[in-house]
């Protein structure tokens, strides 16, 4: 209870403080450069040159400290040893590319990278196309969208229950094993079977992300001009042809955005692996490896190096996003 009271107090202090900062800084600015008197014109110009920076001040400060500074500091740390005190050159990078666990994580991340965005976007497109054609489509959509609200840990519990294995000669209570027993009579410890287990973990993320893809793609599908579809119908195109030849090509841009958004998420996937296998049985991924080196290994050099690998993988998408944003603004 104490924490909640503290939280409420913080909100009041924080919000009040923010408002006060913005209000007072504006007042001060107006007092120093009054918009009347002999220098009114020049004052107004000076004030309006400074004002944007007052508005953006707290944001720029927070962004610099919490996102920009760490990038450079991590770079620095990656050339230092476990404690961050001694310079070790490229030792961490040499270690990285010879490390069995890292190579496994990298391979797994690449697999995730191919499977999850493709499957989520594919299922999302399918769900969007289908639900747009039926009367209870919105209801269906919100059920498929629902896993988005569930935490990765919660989702891990949900799916771990499905993959549950009780051992031989015991009634299986996991759905997957119940189906396996019904079909082939043999239950298995699915989560420990390589490389199948990685795919079972991917299913969890696909299950979560399909709703996201569906919502965005469905909006894009609705935005397609009616005339193009009508023209195709008049020309005698079948529904499948209309979908693949007329609709999909017109929403490539949105598909790309969905794909890249999920890709970024996949590169950072962590909670699911941590909660379900903790990287055992050949399921390790980069984000969890980094976490391992940070907490269990207490090696800031190696952990930073692994984190930088994730950063490097994200960079192409970052540049692509920036170029898109700039093009859009012009």
């Amino acid at each position: 209870m104490e924490q909640v009271l503290m939280a409420v107090a913080t909100i009041l202090v924080g919000v009040f403080g923010c408002v006060l900062y913005f209000y007072l800084s504006n007042q001060v600015l107006d007092a120093i450069f009054p918009g009347r008197g002999p220098n009114a014109g020049r004052n107004i110009n000076t004030a309006s040159a400074i004002r944007p920076w007052l508005f953006m001040g707290p944001a720029i400060l927070l962004l610099s400290v919490y996102l920009v500074y760490p990038v450079f500091n991590s770079l620095w740390l990656s050339f230092h040893d476990a404690t961050g005190d001694n310079f070790v050159g490229v030792d961490n990078y040499v270690w990285l590319f010879g490390d069995e666990k890292f190579l496994e994580s990298f391979r797994n991340n690449m697999m995730w990278l191919v499977v999850v965005p493709a499957a989520s976007t594919g299922f999302g497109l399918l769900a969007a196309a289908l639900t747009d054609r039926i009367r209870w489509g919105n209801f269906a959509k919100s059920l498929i969208f629902m896993p988005m609200a569930i935490s990765f840990v919660g989702a891990s519990v949900i799916w771990k229950f499905i993959y549950d294995y009780r051992g031989e000669g015991v009634t299986e209570i996991g759905l997957l094993n119940a189906i396996a027993v019904a079909l082939s009579g043999v239950a298995k410890g699915w989560i420990t079977i390589e490389p199948l287990n990685s795919f079972l973990l991917m299913v969890v993320l696909i299950w979560i992300q399909t709703g996201f893809a569906m919502v965005i793609l469905s909006a894009a599908l609705r935005g397609i001009p009616e005339e193009t579809i009508e023209a195709a119908v008049i020309d005698g195109a079948s529904p499948l042809q209309i979908f693949f030849r007329i609709k999909v090509p017109q929403i490539w841009g949105t598909i790309a955005v969905v794909w890249t958004t999920i890709t970024i998420l996949v590169l950072k996937v962590f909670d699911i692996v941590l909660a379900m296998t903790n990287g055992q049985w050949g399921t390790q991924v980069l984000a969890n490896l980094m976490f391992d080196w940070m907490f269990r290994g207490s090696d800031s050099g190696r952990a930073s190096t692994v984190a930088l690998v994730i950063m490097v993988l994200v960079t192409p998408i970052m540049i692509w996003n920036i170029r898109n944003a700039r093009r859009e603004m012009q």
Partner: peptide
């Protein structure tokens, strides 16, 4: 324009990078 581009860029910075320094 540069600040807007920076915000778009920061959207995808992996949090893993931020933990140890912060």
């Amino acid at each position: 324009a540069i600040l807007i581009a920076a915000v778009v860029g920061l959207l995808v910075v992996p949090l893993q990078l931020a933990f140890i320094p912060l």
